[in-house]
Simulated scan of single mutants.
Amino acid sequence: MRTLLNLIWLIFAGFWLALGYFFAGIICCVLIITIPFGIAAFRIGVFALWPFGQTTVRRGDAGVMTAVGNVIWFVVAGLWLAIAHLFTGIALCVTIIGIPLGLANFKLIPVSLRPLGVDIVPTGDPRAFVA
C-alpha cells in the first residue's frame, strides 16, 4: 500500500514539491553562507518525494545554533511553506481519494517549519518510536 500511495503522491504532488525544494537547496548552497539551509532543503525534498513509510525524528545533538537557524528559516521560508502545505493538504482532503495525499502534506508541515536538527527515518526505524 505504501508503494502505491508513494507512486500516486509522486505523480500528483511529490515531484513538483521535491523539485521546488531541490531548487531552493541549490540556491542556498550557491550563496555559501546558507549551505545548512540548502542541506535542509535537500532533506525535505527527498522526504517530499517519497513521504509514505518515513517519519521525522529530532536529533539529540542539535544545539543552540540549530535553534537560531530554525528561527531564521521560520521567518524567511518556513511559515510560507507551512501555509502552502496546509492549503494544499486541505484541497487534497476535499476528495475521498485525496485524503491520504492531504495527510502526507500535513506531515510535511513540521519539517518545513523547523528543518534543522531533524532526521528523516523509515517508520520501522527504532528512532521513530522514541518520544
Rank of each mutant, 00 (worst) to 15 (best):
T3F: 11
T3D: 11
T3A: 14
L5G: 06
L7E: 08
I8L: 15
I8A: 13
W9P: 04
L10K: 03
L10I: 06
L10Y: 05
L10M: 03
A13L: 14
G20F: 09
Y21L: 10
Y21P: 02
F22M: 09
F23N: 11
I26Q: 11
I27L: 15
I27Y: 13
C28G: 03
C28R: 05
C28Y: 12
C29D: 08
V30I: 14
I32G: 00
F37Q: 04
A40E: 12
A40H: 10
A40C: 11
A40Q: 06
A41G: 06
F42E: 11
F42S: 10
R43P: 02
V46T: 14
F47Y: 15
F47D: 04
L49V: 07
L49P: 03
W50Y: 14
Q54D: 07
T55R: 01
T56A: 04
V57H: 09
R58V: 12
G60M: 02
D61V: 03
M65E: 12
T66W: 10
A67P: 04
V68N: 10
G69D: 05
V71N: 00
W73P: 07
V75K: 06
V76P: 00
V76K: 02
L79Y: 13
L79Q: 07
L79T: 15
L81A: 00
A82F: 07
A84V: 13
A84E: 02
H85S: 03
F87M: 14
A91R: 11
L92S: 06
I96G: 01
I97N: 03
G98Q: 05
A104K: 01
A104D: 02
N105G: 07
N105V: 06
N105R: 09
F106G: 09
L108A: 00
S112K: 00
R114I: 14
P115A: 01
P115C: 03
L116W: 02
L116P: 01
G117V: 00
V121M: 02
V121H: 02
P122T: 11
G124S: 13
A128I: 05
V130P: 07
A131T: 13
